[in-house]
Design a binder for these strands. Structure first.
Lengths: 302, 302
DNA sequence: CATATGAATGAATTTAACTCATCTATTGGC
DNA sequence: GCCAATAGATGAGTTAAATTCATTCATATG
């Protein structure tokens, strides 16, 4: 299927419709000479004369008359389809699924900057403790904590979560041994795994298992555990990224290490959809926020 | 109706069909980069993303899926129509209407040269003493003797007919006065007019009316008049172009002048038709034959 | 982990499209 | 009949679009 140069077809169709090279040129915003050249080229390509030239007039040949309606209808269909697609409403909204704590602690404090950078994008946050199936259409993208696998999705790693002991400065803790006289604040993870930040695991990493007190308090909501720590009721093992504001305010301190590694946060999306551009813009913005955030803990490698 | 650049539409259709820029490039005999550029240009022109890019793969968006069948069907229809026109039998035959004497005396002796130059053109001669209406489809072209008018036709002048006294050399005529002892051979013209070559007219032009004998023979077929002249039966007023061969063979001589002017021969055609190219080729060949023919009579002008 | 695969980007190159100048053959008005 | 207007043709020169080349990126595969 080797078509003649398409410009020749277009020139022919216009000239045939107008029965005039001059008027066809006017419509296509070129000189009549250009039309003349194109039609001559088409005739040479096909080896068939399409117009009979008369002084000041052109007349379609039989072959020309056979071709004209095909091109006329084809180009009309092209134009119609193109106009339809051009005028289709472009979605400027994206819905992002986020776990509540991340929304509250990491995302919301930063959102003014996204709005300033993308004033035309309508961002909707869909919070859920469970991972949302993006194929379901509930959300266009998600910020997920875990190891995936993100099969069939585009996944951008944001950063790796880390957990350290955090407590109120009024407790006066200085070193791991001080934990013997403290209360451990536990959080019940929905899905514990190897990377779940438990005090037991921390104790092993810190080689401080025998400093761990037997007494403690458990919470089902991690924000409650944080509140208790701020209130001086104990020491919580939590992510400093999520409590950056409280640390900056002096409500919480990191008395000692080490940090233990958790999973990574990923920004994931389907890689498709009419608002892909906006979805990707949000991801790019997240990436820049991660890159520009000052480290809270000295990185020991990853 | 402003369409995007047509090359972009073609690249898109091929990429959509193949679901691969690489394979589309192969089909269109360009590099994959060219496809990538074209599709990007189309997306920018429309302001809509048409493909979702994945590593090593592209997937049509909704908008892309909407456009694809329109272009697929349109270009397929174009290709089909073009192939049909390309393969249509091109007429390689032309029918030329000619008066019998011209066919016999001027055209036929020269035809081998036309055949040699245009071996693929089938020339059919349609002889008729009457002018044929070319719109009737009996003939594609005609060689006509007269002044026209050739309204609505393309007319190329071939040469102006001339008439001189011609006779057998055995008659021994040397000057107009010798006509007194000769027999005049007359031809009955179908449509006499001012330019009809009669002996009476010749006599007036030659200022030799009083040399003209009263006796003569009339023929209804000009070829018979020529034959009689060759046989030595008299003097005929005829066109030397039509008897060039007999002059060259010494069968006829032009004992004296002057020549009188007749009408012109024209090659005429409609200027249209599938075999216009061949019709025009025949006209061009006639023109070259006329140009290359050595003059028989010294031209006195016109 | 190394390699293969295929799309993206941007500068450089190539090519096709287009313009300009001129010519030709009417056609229409005076 | 003459002359200006009209519209298509031709070919060289110019311009803009198409294409390539070099390089990068993100997987996917062995």
């Amino acid at each position: 299927m080797s078509l003649p140069p398409l410009a020749t077809l277009r020139a022919f169709e216009a000239a045939a419709r107008h029965q005039s090279f001059k008027n066809a040129a006017s419509e296509l915003a070129v000189t009549p000479t250009a039309i003349s050249h194109q039609i001559r080229l088409l005739e040479e390509t096909l080896g068939v004369r399409l117009f009979d030239r008369k002084p000041r007039q052109v007349v379609l040949t039989e072959a020309g008359q056979e071709l004209y309606p095909v091109f006329r209808d084809g180009f009309a269909a092209f134009a119609k389809a193109v106009d339809r697609v051009r005028s289709r409403p472009v979605s400027r909204s994206i819905t992002v699924s986020v776990i509540p704590s991340f929304a509250a602690k990491w995302l919301l404090p930063r959102l003014p900057r996204f709005q300033a950078e993308y004033p035309g994008v309508n961002l909707r946050l869909h919070t859920s403790p469970e991972a949302v199936d993006l194929a379901g259409g509930v959300a266009d993208a998600a910020i997920r904590y875990g190891v995936g696998p993100y099969t069939g999705l585009v996944a951008h790693k944001m950063f790796r979560e880390q957990f350290v002991p955090l407590c109120s400065p009024v407790l006066g803790l200085k070193k791991p041994e001080d934990l013997r006289n403290a209360t451990l604040l536990h959080f019940d993870w929905l899905r514990p795994d190897d990377a779940t930040p438990t005090w037991q695991r921390w104790g092993q990493v810190a080689d401080a298992v025998n400093h761990l007190p037997s007494a403690g308090i458990s919470f089902s909501d991690d924000s409650h555990a944080i509140q208790a720590a701020i209130a001086g009721q104990g020491v919580v093992l939590a992510s400093p990224e999520m409590v950056r504001a409280e640390i900056d305010a002096g409500l919480l301190v990191m008395p000692f290490g080490p940090e233990i590694k958790g999973h990574c946060y990923h920004y994931v999306h389907t890689g498709r959809g009419d608002n892909l551009r906006e979805v990707e813009a949000f991801g790019a913005w997240i990436e820049s926020e991660v890159a520009s955030a000052a480290p809270i803990i000295e990185q020991s490698g990853d």
